[in-house]
Design a protein around this nucleic acid. Structure first.
Lengths: 243, 243
DNA sequence: TAGTTCGACTGGTATAGACAACTAGTTATA
DNA sequence: TATAACTAGTTGTCTATACCAGTCGAACTA
C-alpha cells in the first residue's frame, strides 16, 4: 500500500507525488501545521531524485498547500483566516484586479464606545475601544477608508506595530483567541465631510459602505470594521431604485 | 552592457535572471506576445546551467509574466482582459474566498433585443442577439445567475463551444476586436420567479444585481452582462437606508 | 553550570547531462 | 504533386551530485 508511484506512467513522476501529498492533506492524514517527510526521505522511499521531489513540493507551495522553512522542514499550510471566513482581503482583491495595493495608517487611538459601535462589539457605551483608521490605496489612488473598532479589554496590549502587521495573527497566536466567523453588511451611502477629504472626492458622492462584524468561537464580537469605498473608482454606479 | 549577472553576488543567480527579464518586460523591451530567448540561449550567454534559467522562468510563469509553449518557446504573457478592465472575474473572486468555482451553462439562444437590452447594446429593438445564461456555483452551491447579451451581427459565428471557453479571447483573437473598457452598475433588488428557482431561494429574497457593459475601442458596446447574486450566500445584508 | 562546538538534520542553490515530446521547416521519396 | 522522413529548434522531465545556509540538540569544555 505504499509505493503509489509508477515510473512508467505517462503522468510525470513529480505530478504523481504532488497528487499523493495533496490527497493526504485533503484526507486529513496530514494535519495543518504538521511536518511532512523531508525531500530526501521522499526521494529515497520512492527511489527518485530529490530534484523531482522538489518540483512536486514547489508546486504545492505555490498552490498554498505547503510552506517551507529552511533548516526545519516542510509543513502543511494553514488556511488563511480570510479564506476560513470566506472574506476577500483588500490586498487580494486589488491584486486580482491587477492593481498594486498599499495601506496608510492615519489614526490609532483609544476612545470611548458610542451607541452603535458599543452594541456591535457587545460592550457598554463609554467602555474603552481601540479605533484604527486606515486608507487603502490601489496604485496609490485612495480607494477606501477603513475604520476598525476593537474592545480594549479584549485585545489588551494592542499597539501601532501590531496594527501595521497582521491583526488576526496577533489575536490568534499571541492572545490565543479563535476567530470563528464574520458577517458583512453592504449598503449604499454618500460621502460625508471626513470621508470626502481622505478619499479626495466631493461630499455627497455615492460610496459603498461595508460593515464587517468578526466573531470569536465563544460568540464574543472581536471587531467591527467599517469600510467606505469610492463608488467611482470601483466603477460601481450605485442607484437606489428597486428592480 | 550585457552581462548583468554576478555569480558571486549573495543574490541567487536565478533571481538575478528573473529580475532582468521582468525589467525588460516592464521597460517594454519585450512586448506582449513576443518570444523571449530560449532557455539554452540564456544558459549559454550567461554561462550558467539551463536548470537555473528554468528556475527563473518558472517563477515568472507562476507570477503571470510569461507563458511557455512546448516546442515553440516562451512568450511574454498577455495581461488578462479582466485585469485590463479592472474587473474581478467570478472565478478569481471565488478562489480568493477559498471556494471552488464552477459554471453551468443553462441556456444559449438567439432572440430579439428588447427595450433596455437593445439600447444598452446600441442596436434596434427586434435586432438579433445572442443570449447566454449561466449559473455560477461556489462549492457546488448556486451563487449567481448570469445572463450575457451580445449583438448577433457583431460577434458572428458564436457557438456553444466558444461560450464555454473564453469569450473575450474569441472576440479579440478570432474576430480581431479590441475590448477597451467596462462600466458596472450595482443595485439592490429582490429575486423574481425565474431567479429564485435557479438559485434555490425564496421569491422576494434580497439579491445583488450587477450590470456590466463592456465596450470596444471604437466605442461600440460589446456585451451586457446581468448578474443576480444571492444576498444570503454572499453574506451581504442589503439594507437600503441611507447613511 | 553556563557556554561553545560539533554533527546531523532540514531546505536553498547550482551544475552538467540525458532523453522525451512537440513544432516547424526542409528534403527526399513514392 | 502529395506524402513521408529528416533536422534543428523549442520546452518538459528526470538524474546524480555538490555545496551552502539555517536549525536544533547532544556532546564537550571552561
Amino acid at each position: 500500500m505504499k509505493n503509489m508511484i509508477d515510473k512508467y506512467s505517462p503522468l510525470p513522476i513529480y505530478y504523481q507525488i504532488e497528487e499523493a501529498i495533496k490527497g493526504r492533506i485533503e484526507k486529513g492524514e496530514l494535519q495543518e501545521g504538521e511536518m511532512i517527510p523531508s525531500e530526501r526521505e521522499y526521494a529515497e522511499t520512492y527511489g527518485i531524485s530529490r530534484m523531482t521531489v522538489r518540483q512536486a513540493i514547489t508546486n504545492l507551495v505555490n498552490d498554498g498547500y505547503l510552506t517551507r522553512r529552511k533548516g526545519k522542514g516542510t509543513f502543511v499550510a494553514n488556511q488563511k483566516i480570510e479564506q476560513k471566513l470566506g472574506l476577500t482581503s483588500f490586498t487580494e482583491d486589488m491584486k486580482a484586479r491587477g492593481l498594486k495595493p498599499s495601506t496608510k495608517l492615519i489614526d490609532f487611538q483609544v476612545s470611548d464606545a458610542r451607541g452603535k459601535i458599543a452594541s456591535g462589539l457587545g460592550i457598554h457605551p463609554g467602555d474603552e475601544i481601540y479605533e484604527i483608521q486606515r486608507v487603502r490605496l490601489a496604485d496609490n489612488i485612495p480607494m477606501a477608508l477603513e475604520t476598525t473598532y476593537l474592545a480594549a479589554d479584549l485585545v489588551k496590549g494592542l499597539n501601532q506595530r501590531i496594527v501595521q502587521g497582521s491583526l488576526y495573527q496577533y489575536v490568534e497566536e499571541e492572545l490565543g483567541l479563535s476567530i470563528d466567523y464574520a458577517t458583512q453588511e453592504l449598503e449604499a451611502s454618500v460621502a460625508r465631510e471626513t470621508e470626502s477629504e481622505v478619499l479626495r472626492i466631493a461630499k455627497g458622492t455615492p460610496v459603498l459602505l461595508i460593515r464587517r462584524y468578526t466573531y470569536l468561537k465563544d460568540g464574543r464580537p472581536l471587531e467591527l470594521v467599517q469600510s467606505i469605498y469610492r463608488g467611482d473608482r470601483y466603477k460601481f454606479i450605485i442607484d437606489m431604485q428597486r428592480g
